[in-house]
Amino acid sequence: MTRILFSDKLDNCVTRWQSAGFSVIGPVTKDTFSSYAAVEHASDFDLGIVLPDRSLKELFFPQTEPMLRYTIKQQAINTEDFTPPSGKRLIFGVRPCDAAGLSIDDPLFGWDYKDEYWFQRRNDSVIVTIACTKSDDFCLCTSLKLAPDTTNGSDILLRPLENNKGWQVEELTDRGREAFLTIAEFLQEGSEPAAPMAVVPEMFDLDTCVAWLQNPENFESKFWKDISMRCIGCGSCTYLCPTCHCFDIQDEGDTYSGIRRKNWDSCSFALFTMHTSGHNPRSTQSARWRQRIMHKFNYFPGKFSVNSCSGCGRCSRQCPVDMGITETLQKISTLHS
């Protein structure tokens, strides 16, 4: 016997969570576009999509965030900090790759400086993940040694039932247990079998790719130029990525008053590495694409022992010129290191 959450009870759960002080968030489709957004009712969720167009990252690391306000009057400089927003959130229907993305970025944001904005939101959020029973041509979690039911980063894992009437509940953390205690009366014991997981074929052998990337001789390989010739240098892969985390600090305003903001930035942009002198150490798009791949599969794991990719496939799915991590690593896996 397993604990089951039946879909027809989901709206009761949403209401209960809301009255327990949670803001309830989940995958929502508006017109042709989907993202994780706040809902009022369970019927607002779109749980049928493979995954939302936009990743979960932005709920923890928004594209623009005010950090402080400054005013300068005569001799006095006043600053007022914007404290990280607080408030309990329950994010329902997260995809395992998106949840895993959070756990990948945790060590980064807590490394030499603990990013209060990230961790405030992490501590305030309950991640209720639904394992995937379907995938598309771009999903690549299994190539990253993850799976359609990976639990990394999740507080609760729900496994869809074969009869499509609800989910088996697996409580993974105390935070998850606590949130599900509030809806205990809507859960039932049952023996309904779980639906089979999505079959996500392995697209490349990751170890072979990593070995090639770690070989210093390949840094200057002609491969980088060939693979990225059609890259147009937009930042959509990095901005849709659930783990890309680079940001820029900008002061908006004038000499006397303004706001300091933390804005997404992207290694795809030439400006990202432009020096004040005008020199750019990554002067070509191929050097920038190489950086992105190296960072994800060589430098980041070298520092934090985890790849900076959870296999959601958004980079390939949305690329205007049909590039992406999959194609690059597929090709690398066929090269001799």
Partner: peptide, 12 residues
């Protein structure tokens, strides 16, 4: 409100 300033419109 959805714009993320990835500049794909410009680059393409």
């Amino acid at each position: 409100s959805r714009c993320i300033k990835c500049y794909a419109c410009r680059q393409s």
